[in-house]
Simulated scan of single mutants.
Amino acid sequence: MLSDAGLGDQSFSDAGFKGLEEARDELNISFDYREIKDAKTYEKRLEELVNQGNDVVIGLGFSMQEAIETVAKKFPDQTFLLIDSESELPNVHSVTFKEEEGSYLIGVIAGMKTKSHVVGFVGGVDVPLIRKFEKGFTEGVKKVNPKAKVISTFAGSFDDDKKGMQIAKYMIKQKADYIYPAAGFTGVGVLNEAQKSGIYTFGVDSDQFYLAEKAVVTSMLKRVDVAVYNIAKELVKTGKLSEKKTQLGIKEEGIDTAPIRVITLTSAETDKLNEFRRHISEGTIQIQP
């Protein structure tokens, strides 16, 4: 079940749905879904999916947790999967990501390439999950450019591209020349304004280069599609989910970055970026969210 911005956010929700479509096409599974924006109806829609006899009911997004846990208590024999948050209920499995790791690499790029020494971060809703993006980005910037200033603003929404444009305009007036949004469809507004204003920006969750091909340097890839596909693959193979809690980062290939476009890194900058990636994968660099 999809919540918040839902399909068409060109980011998190679309990535998760892509994984379901690939599983349908390649593994011959069938699925149904609900796209809900009113939190008051989450439980009702989840119960509909349970009553259909689905092997697993997936809640895509941290905002689904309360509803999933309420419904999971009513249906203790039903398996649920919560993506982007963790539950302690025995019949709710969880997949989370180390967003701070990929965001750190985005910050390294911004810190190395900024000319104004001012960069921006735009979050959707101010919750611990989005703070992980902010923390990783800020630490990456400061690691390579201690003098840089990081402007951080939360839009309060994941589905307001106009608000994203307004925030980007404000940051650009403050001389930000690289802006990193972690804000769903709100972030698409940031990408559009960055391109319009001639500065640089970054995609999030999926490769968003095609949304602003003159501005998107790279994207922090959160492989929700891979996670969903692998869950479906395990179900087809074994009929159940083996892991109660799964956390995916760079080492586990759940977090990555898209190809660098629009700008060019020097060989020394490329080596430095690859070195940070290796240290994160090996655990010698740890970002505490």
Results as ranks from 00 to 15, higher is better:
E26T: 14
H117V: 00
T201C: 07
S87P: 02
L7I: 05
E47G: 07
I167E: 00
L49Y: 00
K175I: 13
T114Q: 00
I260N: 00
G198K: 07
K115E: 12
D25V: 09
L2C: 05
I280N: 01
I172N: 00
I109M: 08
V144P: 04
V216K: 04
K132L: 10
E234K: 12
D25A: 15
E66T: 14
E275P: 01
P289N: 09
L2H: 09
V262S: 01
L241G: 03
R131I: 06
V190D: 09
L129M: 10
T218S: 12
F75S: 05
K237I: 11
D77I: 05
R278G: 03
F12T: 10
R278Q: 14
D205R: 00
D9W: 05
V57T: 02
Q174Y: 06
I255K: 10
G6C: 07
A183M: 13
S3H: 07
S85K: 15
V228H: 03
T96E: 04
Y33I: 02
F97D: 03
E134L: 14
L241H: 09
Q166K: 14
V228G: 01
D177E: 09
A183N: 12
L265A: 06
D161T: 11
L82N: 09
G136L: 07
D271Y: 13
Y200D: 01
P259I: 04
G53H: 11
F158Q: 10
I106N: 08
L2I: 01
T79N: 13
V125A: 13
P146V: 13
S85P: 02
G156V: 09
L211D: 07
V144L: 10
A232P: 03
K175A: 09
A67D: 07
V122N: 04
Q52P: 00
K40W: 08
S63G: 10
I285T: 10
L49N: 01
S206Y: 01
S152E: 10
S197G: 12
D38L: 12
